[in-house]
Amino acid sequence: MQTTDSTRRDLRERTRDTRERLGRERDVWVSTAHPDRGPHQVPLWFWWDGHALWLCTGEATATARNLRADPRVRLALPDTSDVVQLRGTAECFPAREVPEEGAAGFTAKFGWDPRADEGSFVYVRVSPETVLAWRGEAELTGRVLMRKGAWLG
């Protein structure tokens, strides 16, 4: 989704638009870091349950390894004209231990159930602690929509 709308939205509009995008979008950039190897970034599919993002990745991937070592994560939706960035803490669940709600929501959205595949997968639940959103310079002021896990608008 590309937008060039430079009309300044108020906090309520930005929050509404951001929550709607989280429910609609498919991909998110996931940024993690390893204490020795440094930053790692990868796009993954996600499902938004209204409170947290659910992702899935291979158990042996750098993303899974990094999150087990340090659960702090940054996420970003892919549109650079309509920026949404999230910061949070990840919880990793082996596929056999994932809460049913997370697995079922992910499967319903993508038509793929990693639990049924031969590979070893990890589900990741990220509960955002901070959400920022802006469209262009006009919205840089007031771009924080969530602080300490609570929506501001």
Rank of each mutant, 00 (worst) to 15 (best):
G58E: 05
T61Q: 06
R65M: 12
E59F: 03
L67M: 10
V84C: 02
W47D: 09
T63H: 06
T63I: 07
L86P: 04
R65T: 14
T80H: 14
R68S: 04
L75Q: 01
W47N: 09
A62N: 07
W45L: 14
T63E: 10
D49Q: 06
G58F: 03
R74Q: 07
G88H: 08
G58W: 07
T89Q: 14
R96N: 07
L53N: 05
W45A: 11
T89K: 12
Q85W: 08
N66P: 00
D70R: 08
C56H: 00
C56P: 00
L55P: 00
V83S: 06
R72K: 07
D70V: 01
W45C: 06
G50D: 12
P94A: 14
W48N: 09
E91D: 02
W54A: 11
T57A: 15
R87F: 08
V98Y: 02
A90T: 00
R96E: 14
T80P: 11
C56V: 11
T89F: 05
F46E: 13
R74H: 07
L53A: 13
G88K: 08
R65Y: 07
A64L: 04
N66L: 10
S81T: 13
D49H: 07
V84N: 10
A64W: 03
W48F: 12
F93T: 14
R68Q: 06
F93L: 03
A69F: 02
D79T: 13
R96P: 00
D70C: 00
R96H: 14
P71T: 03
R74D: 01
R74V: 01
R96Q: 13
R87I: 04
R74P: 03
R74N: 09
A60M: 00
A60T: 08
W47Q: 14
S81Y: 14
T57R: 09
W47I: 11
D49Y: 01
H51T: 15
A52V: 02
F93S: 05
R87W: 06
V83Q: 06
R68A: 09
R96M: 12
R87V: 06
H51Y: 10
D79S: 15
P78Y: 11
Q85D: 10
A76Q: 15
A90D: 02
A52T: 11
T57I: 09
C92G: 04
W47P: 04
A69P: 01
R87L: 15
L86A: 10
N66E: 11
R87P: 01
V84A: 11
H51V: 14
T80A: 15
R74F: 02
L67T: 12
R96F: 09
W47H: 13
H51S: 15
G88N: 12
A95Q: 13
G88R: 10
R96S: 12
E97W: 00
T89V: 13
T80Q: 13
N66Y: 12
P94N: 10
A69D: 06
A95K: 11
L67W: 09
T61A: 12
A69K: 10
D70F: 03
A52W: 02
C92I: 15
R65P: 00
A76W: 02
G88S: 02
G58R: 08
R68H: 13
V83W: 04
A64S: 13
A76S: 15
L55H: 04
A76K: 09
N66F: 05
V98H: 07
A52M: 02
H51M: 10
A60I: 01
L86H: 05
A95F: 08
T57M: 01
R65Q: 15
G50H: 11
W45V: 01
L77V: 10
W45F: 08
